[in-house]
């Protein structure tokens, strides 16, 4: 399987995501520069953590105008899996690919620590290899990770089983303890915690690997119609 890791100016977890899927899982990956008009032949896209465009104005607010986001939109529309981690989640929200917003942590400070996540659904290409209710130890590192949306949106997310992960010990004030959500079509996921940082027991946890393993397993068992994807590129 081949992952495409988007590199915005200011992305700083791009190498980490790349390393997690290549060195730890033996898959292929390539970096995709933010002004690329095409994604090439990748099977899944990762928007990594960092501070795209310095997070100036608002996290993800400038990144959404990057040329590559047009290609990401098309890829997602054709059913390709798109994973936004931390800053990547913020970009997806700003780009309108996921609902809601990520606002300043309730404590107003950047927080770096391990949190426990409960896997709320396995009906997604990102959690198919996990168990429902499985608790993952994964780190967070963000200043603006408080998930916020109006009640209707939150109700809808829950009714449609689109909340993927919830914090067991909510670190940032996220509404309804939401740590990660899915798009309506379930092929776009954003999550504030960093699964790529929990991808090696040496680093303290390998629980995050299940997210990437789910993608790999999904790709192996259900090859997408590559002609369809090719057509929209």
């Amino acid at each position: 399987m081949k992952f495409g890791v988007i590199v915005f100016p200011g992305s700083n977890c791009d190498h980490d995501a790349f390393y997690a899927v290549t060195a730890n899982l033996g898959e292929k990956a390539e970096f995709i520069w933010h002004d690329s008009a095409s994604l090439g032949d990748v099977d899944a896209v990762i928007l990594p953590g960092g501070f795209a465009y310095g997070d100036y104005l608002r996290c993800g607010a400038i990144a959404k105008f990057s040329p590559v986001m047009q290609a990401v939109r098309k890829f997602a529309a054709a059913g390709g899996p798109v994973l936004g981690i931390c800053n990547g989640f913020q970009v997806l929200v700003e780009a309108g690919l996921l609902p809601g917003a990520l606002i300043r942590n309730r404590g107003l400070k950047f927080i770096c620590r391990e949190v426990r996540l409960r896997t709320e659904t396995t009906d997604s290409p990102f959690t198919a290899a996990a168990q429902k209710g499985q608790v993952l130890r994964v780190p967070i590192a963000h200043g603006e990770g408080c998930y916020f949306a109006d009640d209707r949106t939150l109700d809808e997310l829950e009714a449609e089983d689109r909340v993927v992960f919830r914090y067991l010990d909510n670190p940032n004030g996220s509404l309804r303890d939401i740590a990660g959500i899915l798009s309506r079509e379930r092929n776009v996921m954003g999550m504030m915690p960093h699964p790529e940082r929990a991808s090696d027991p040496l680093m303290g946890s390998a629980d995050g690997l299940v997210v990437f393993q789910s993608l790999i397993r999904g790709q192996a068992t259900q090859p997408r119609n590559s002609a369809d994807i090719e057509a929209i590129r």
Partner: peptide, 26 residues
Amino acid sequence: QQYDYQVRTNTLAGPEAADAGILRIK
């Protein structure tokens, strides 16, 4: 806790974990 002590995924021992900070060199 206000510092990102894990980015680059090399931190084997971060703040207050061990007597010294440890980074693996991949």
